[in-house]
Write a protein that binds this DNA or RNA. Structure first.
Lengths: 395, 395
DNA sequence: GGGGGTTTGTTAAAGTCCTTGAAATACCGG
DNA sequence: CCGGTATTTCAAGGACTTTAACAAACCCCC
């Protein structure tokens, strides 16, 4: 049955202490006056005082000198702020070419950031690079592995929610055989969560926007992935949610044998280049025939009005819009945010996608580019780790 | 900022009383011994006693005679149960042909059920039928309109979550002009919520299954709609979530001018009949040429091995699978449950859809028929209304 | 330099609630 | 009529928050 927890008076203390801690977090990174906390939490002065004493004692908060800033005449206020090092979290983005890791403190301050290239692909080698990146980051933050409060790892492929095992990762050969979460759990004494990279990127994108609402965040580069964030929380479904790369768009796109999905073969960065190459063949005057031909070049040419490039962009936008339209109809997201390499395409692609989606959906979502840079996935991993820590407020 | 509620000792009482009430609900409709509640809630005897006294005083619980059932030797236990009439809820399913209404008590006991046909279509007339159905149901349950604690109305079309206005309802001409929620709010003193009918059906289907997980519940008849339920909660998105009828499947399906979406024109019950008619034309021996030709007949013929019928069913299944595959990839639901008229098709359709989905998705969901009967939508409306009441436990 | 004003911190008493443990109650079977 | 059993009732004790009054520290201004 619904085994409810017994509720005695001590629970009140827990609740109030947690409320105070959250209030302090809401003001981070600024130190807060206790009187301000009274106003924020609605609790009374003695209660807040008690809670703050407890939190300082447990290492969650640090007291500041009353010396600084005395705004109005009156007794100098005690000011407290988050003691970030109380529960630092580690994020890890394991990609086929690069391993990025970062350490954030409780207040989301970056304590360390390390990025290492992966020379030759190979799962065993990758694990070594992961270890080295983690070691360097810990050294940079001057922390021991046992001090880390939560670890979140981003990896391509599908992750089993329960075990953290990687079930499918076409882009890293042999990667599914490695039990990454097991490996890291041995090194850290805290929960280690492995999550799909596109999902974490979605979380990062959602963090940039307002909390509520539904978001479909697409990562669009050579490969395509997406994450669904509903009211600030990641939607995982049975585990493989957001795998838009395997949507089958109209038309035939032969299997490339490298594990890519149909949509990736149709509108991935490489496919865009290939489309442009074919389009340029029939257009002697096209800008696509001169200079280096890659996806950015196609978008630049389209922005300049080059007919062949515009056609390519429109075809790509149409294929993408048709592919995601059913999902947009079912989810009715507030926005579709596009990140990854293609996000640097400029507005040509955006407007085309918007136009096509308008004809295919009932309440067309806003279509936007993500403003986040290369470390989107890492940001999302750290964000999820922080959420995890804040979720189990161990006051 | 995060305006936290002040937490004093009285809050404890609220919490515990609510826990007791939930525990009683968990045992409904059976009366519960107080000692049992102590075990269920983990609270102590005096606390439970206090809470029960409060709840009986407020009318939420009713005490039973100790006369009945004395299982073991010992002092007869005080037994309490939900006083259903404390907060009855009213559900309303407004369809183009029928208006159904029902009243449930707190324990989800049906107190009244009224179903009225709508003679001629027309928004004004429909409103009159709604009023009559509500009036009859109230009379049947011997309740006044002011005693109802929550009202949920199911309507076709897209509903604005904020105002409750109907934004788009192709199947009922003029229906968007009627402010249904305003009309009912004038009659009831409680919250009135208007919700898309397919969404409510989804909620009902989810209620039949275990609580957690992601569910895509499709209503498949002349028209197609769906609802998304995630961990027991309805996903609305911007308001139009689940409108799968407007997915555009491959192939051309001319606009019929009655507001139907492309997928409805491709695989709706009527489209199935039309497909069968065309298939039968070329097959002199087909079972489809004899007898009445409608969707059930097609499925029956396919189950019997009729070649033309099998082809039709397979084509329909393929179109449906292709249409929802992108949504399945993005959502990764545990199950796709199909209700509505087509759900009585038998397993021919199911297996065909399952087969096609397996090739189109990474983690194919279970595809099932809903076991619920005609009043699925009404059940969902009542369920949501009850959730609403239980959500704002006004202890 | 001293007093008023202001803001904040401190402390003790009171109130509310939950818990503990012992005693009382009510029914059964023999 | 008497133990046995399960439940209820009652009173004392402990934990927490609140209220309210008081003390501290700083500013400004005369």
């Amino acid at each position: 049955m619904a085994e409810e927890r017994a509720v005695g008076t001590p629970v009140l203390r827990r609740l109030n202490t947690a409320a105070v801690l959250r209030a302090v977090r809401g003001c981070a990174p600024e130190p807060v006056r206790l009187a301000e906390l009274v106003r924020l939490t609605g609790l009374t002065r003695p209660t807040v005082g008690q809670a703050v004493d407890d939190l300082v004692g447990a290492g969650w908060l640090q007291q500041h000198d009353p010396a600084a800033t005395s705004p109005q005449g009156g007794r100098p206020a005690v000011r407290v702020s988050l003691r970030g090092r109380a529960a630092p979290v580690l994020g890890l983005d394991v990609g086929p070419h690069t391993v990025s890791t970062g350490i954030d403190d409780l207040a989301a301050h970056r304590l360390a950031a390390v990025r290492l290239p992966v020379g030759d692909t190979g799962a065993g080698r990758l694990l070594g690079v992961v270890d080295e990146a983690v070691g360097r980051a810990l050294a940079e933050a001057a922390l021991g592995a046992d001090e880390i409060a939560a670890v979140v790892v981003a990896t391509p492929g599908i992750v089993d929610p329960a075990s953290g095992r990687i079930l499918l990762a076409p882009s890293v050969p042999g990667w599914t055989a490695v039990n990454l979460s097991e490996h890291l759990r041995g090194r850290f004494g805290c929960p280690v969560r492995v999550e799909n990279d596109a999902n974490l990127a979605a979380l990062a994108v959602a963090g940039e926007r307002s909390g509520a609402g539904t978001l479909l965040a697409v990562q669009w580069g050579e490969r395509l992935g997406a994450g669904v964030v509903i009211d600030g929380r990641l939607h995982r479904g049975t585990g493989a949610a957001g795998e838009i790369g395997f949507i089958r768009p109209p038309g035939e796109f032969p299997d490339t044998g490298d594990g890519r999905g149909p949509l990736e073969r149709a509108v991935g960065a490489e496919a865009i280049t290939e489309r442009a190459r074919r389009a340029a063949r029939d257009r002697p005057g096209s800008a696509l025939r001169s200079g280096r031909l890659d996806a950015p070049a196609v978008f630049t040419a389209a922005a300049g009005g080059d007919e062949a490039a515009v056609e390519v962009v429109d075809a790509v936008a149409a294929a993408f819009a048709h592919a995601i339209a059913p999902a947009v109809l079912v989810l009715a997201p507030d926005a579709v945010v596009i990140g990854g390499g293609v996000a640097r395409a400029g507005s040509v692609l955006l407007t085309a996608i918007t136009r096509h989606l308008e004809g295919l959906t009932l309440t067309p979502p806003a279509v936007e580019f993500s403003g986040l840079a290369e470390d989107t996935v890492l940001t999302g991993a750290l964000r999820l780790a922080l959420d995890e820590v804040w979720g189990r407020l161990p006051v």
